[in-house]
């Protein structure tokens, strides 16, 4: 197995894929952390802002709307990641693995 891993490790497409995956993962994680810590810090430092009604005729406050927004954003970003990873990333990944195992002689037997 080490030889196959080694061969994949020398494939530039593998490193390009790993970089693309990690760029997407860290970008989305950054957005999520900013949203959540923004919310937490707003509760600690700017409760007055969260307490404001959304508009002059509203009972719903900025805080309630922000809370809903943070949850909705998380679900949406999770969807974005799966959509990218289960399509383009997995296709490239299958190519890289097929290439490395073909050179090794015969298809790879996962069992």
């Amino acid at each position: 197995m080490h030889q196959v891993y080694d061969r994949i490790d020398r494939d530039p497409r593998f490193h390009a894929l790993a970089r693309a995956r990690s760029r997407l993962g860290w970008t989305l994680s950054g957005l999520v952390l900013v949203a959540y810590y923004g919310f937490v810090l707003a509760i600690a430092f700017a409760p007055g802002w969260l307490a404001r009604p959304l508009g002059p005729d509203n009972t719903v406050t900025v805080g309630i709307a922000t809370g809903l927004g943070v949850i909705a954003l998380s679900v949406a970003l999770t969807g974005v990641y799966v959509w990218r990873a289960n399509r383009s990333f997995d296709r490239t990944n299958a190519d890289i693995v097929a290439n490395a195992t073909r050179v090794a002689g015969g298809p790879y037997d996962a069992g």
Binding site: G25, L28, S29, Y36, F39, L50, G63, L77, T78
Partner: peptide
């Protein structure tokens, strides 16, 4: 009231993080 809602919002942040950094 609102303080209770905080416990609905913050724990949920674990899910996107689990997905982006750990799941695969």
């Amino acid at each position: 009231g609102f303080d209770g809602l905080i416990y609905s919002v913050i724990p949920f942040g674990a899910w996107p993080l689990m997905m982006f950094l750990l799941a695969d």
